[in-house]
Design a protein around this nucleic acid. Structure first.
Lengths: 157, 157
DNA sequence: ATATTAATGCAAGCAAGTTGCATCCACCAT
DNA sequence: ATGGTGGATGCAACTTGCTTGCATTAATAT
């Protein structure tokens, strides 16, 4: 992860280079997947950077098209620096209810809605999947093998 | 819309029949699409029914599988009484940025993710589209014809 | 009719996100 | 280098969607 790549992004978009913004971008870069505001703040912790400034910088990045925003789990936003096309994520996302993380399902495109485009103006598509990611599924199976339980019993509707 | 259909639903699920709950169900029934808490409260207005009770009744209905819940626009929940299968909506939704309404795109199924199911546990899929609905698109075009503007600022995805 | 248990209303609490404002500092022109 | 300027930051307060606690009310079972 090049140190000054973040700075380059800022320069490229005509934004002021500050320690906070560069660190914020580096956090998003090294995450490689959508992060919540809370996750971002935690990852920036050694640096003193006001949570409100995080919100505002993300807002600025969003307006400049540097980051994308997807809906997270509990009515939160997730932000990602990924090299998709214009206004939105171009691939589905996976939300793991076990580790709470969000993953990009690159390799899958956005589904088409044949026939709808005629009457409706489609500006953005979002497709996401909830469940248990590969890693957590493996761990859960291991746990079950060790301490078998009747039912896990957590679901949303 | 049968008057006592709401009452029947409640009886069927072993829930107490109260004026608030029956009205709430009728609101959802006649809407025929996901509504926000605010929309529901507004639609119930002649009746005095505490907004908190609306939340709680919706929660109860959710637990009983009477209603479904989908994410709305600004980190809000939308509730719908629709006759899908088990835990979640089985069709995409359309959010109009002009009138702010949500529509069910019945007739379109949920996209498959071939290959993912092997390593991941998929429990729920959500697919929704944002843009301008047919009615609003027509109105916007009419407006433009009357008061032509340089650019509407809507893009394709 | 009475008892039981769930539903309701009201007040307060919580978390994510937004706004206002004074201060600071990155960048530009000199 | 120096000074000016507008955007970035920190802090406090506010808004909003939603949740919790608790006393009261009312729907169903007996």
């Amino acid at each position: 992860m090049p140190e000054d790549y973040a700075a380059a992004i800022l320069r490229e978009h005509g934004l002021k280079q500050t320690a906070g913004r560069e660190t914020l971008l580096q956090v998003l870069l090294s995450a490689g997947k959508p992060l919540s505001h809370k996750e971002i703040c935690a990852a920036m912790l050694p640096l003193r950077y006001d949570p409100v400034s995080v919100y505002r910088s993300l807002e600025t990045f969003l307006a400049s098209g540097i980051v994308h925003r997807v809906e997270g789990e509990n009515r939160t936003w997730l932000f990602a620096l990924c090299t998709c096309d214009g206004g939105s994520h171009c691939h589905p996302h996976f939300f793991c209810r076990s580790c709470g993380k969000c993953e990009c399902l690159k390799g899958y495109g956005m589904p088409e809605l044949p026939g709808l485009q005629d009457s409706y103006v489609v500006e953005e598509k979002r497709f996401y999947v909830k469940g248990v990611c590969g890693r957590c599924a493996t761990n859960e199976n291991l746990d079950k093998a060790k301490h078998p339980e009747p039912d896990g019993g957590s679901s949303e509707a």
